[in-house]
């Protein structure tokens, strides 16, 4: 654009200074922290780092993290699709309030997201005595971890789909209906193909947050090694026990998850030909 629009061309010096400053900032803010994680993990070479990852408690943490994400992500995917369909394809009273409420969990501290479930299901919570009487455990157990994770990742899918589906309108779906298609056919053959990349991107971000969540699960976990420790919690325990190489090794694994997510999201944006779900 610069060649054809000289009036909005910035002086070369300004341009050069801005680019240099940006690159230096990006280096300090984004690249150095990432590099530090891997450097700390490999401080004493590959072996101790690998050992920390294949060790039994670490493996249990990996399995638990995957399990929690495997439950939480589909719940929020189905909820998000249902919400987007209701909001984008119909008019009803209270729609704007509904959208606001769906985004609410993003402005709630992760610690509070865990706290609310302790208030409900903890030993002195509203349902605590009843749960105890029936020998059910939610807090300090898998259900608590899942609930807290569902809460913090609640809006991801809905908020990537809602604006896109609203923008795409209802005409194609209406056309499909006049051609004899039923609800499932309309969704599967008309709506889904139009939003698949955005949906995938939302699921991806939801998954990254679900696997990496710390504050909320920390409150409801009870930190029982090998049982209720997810990967991020395992990192904290190792760090507090001054097992730095182990902590950074497991952290590297999580950092890789983040990098893969970033890469996949960028790829999806190329495929979709647009920026999706601008913010998380």
């Amino acid at each position: 654009m610069s060649a054809t629009r000289p009036a909005v061309d910035d002086p070369a010096l300004l341009r050069w200074a801005a680019v240099t400053a940006t690159l230096l900032l990006a280096l300090a803010i984004f690249v150095l922290p990432l590099a530090a994680v891997f450097a700390e993990a490999l401080r004493r070479g590959w072996e101790p780092a690998l050992a920390a990852i294949v060790e039994e408690d670490a493996q249990a943490a990996v399995r638990l993290t995957l399990l929690v994400a495997l439950i939480a992500v589909p719940v929020n995917t189905i909820g998000g699709i249902a919400a987007a369909w209701a909001v984008a394809k119909f008019d009803f009273w209270g729609k704007r309030l509904l959208v606001t409420l769906i985004e609410l969990p993003f402005s709630v501290s992760p610690v509070i997201s865990g706290l609310v479930y302790v208030l409900l299901f903890g030993a002195q919570g509203y349902l605590g005595p009843w749960l105890q009487a029936n020998d059910l455990q939610i807090i300090f157990a898998l259900p608590g971890l899942v609930l807290a994770t569902v809460f913090v990742t609640f809006p991801f899918v809905a908020r990537t789909l809602i604006p896109l589906m609203q923008e795409q309108g209802r005409e194609e779906e209406e056309a499909a209906a006049t051609l004899g298609a039923g609800g499932w056919d309309i969704f599967r053959r008309v709506t889904l193909p139009n939003v698949k990349w955005a949906l995938l991107s939302g699921v991806l971000l939801c998954n990254a947050r679900a696997m990496g969540e710390f504050g909320a699960v920390s409150v409801v976990s009870g930190h029982i090694r090998g049982q209720t420790n997810t990967m991020p919690l395992h990192v904290e325990i190792l760090y507090n026990e001054y097992m730095f190489v182990g902590a950074f090794a497991v952290a590297s694994l999580l950092a890789l998850l983040g990098l893969v997510t970033l890469f996949a999201k960028a790829l999806l944006e190329v495929l979709a030909g647009r920026r999706i779900g601008a913010r998380a």
């Binding site: 971000l205 696997m211 990496g212 969540e213 504050g215 990192v235 983040g258 990098l259 970033l262």
Partner: peptide, 8 residues
Amino acid sequence: PFALPTAV
């Protein structure tokens, strides 16, 4: 920062 777990 969106994709990187906060603990990391």
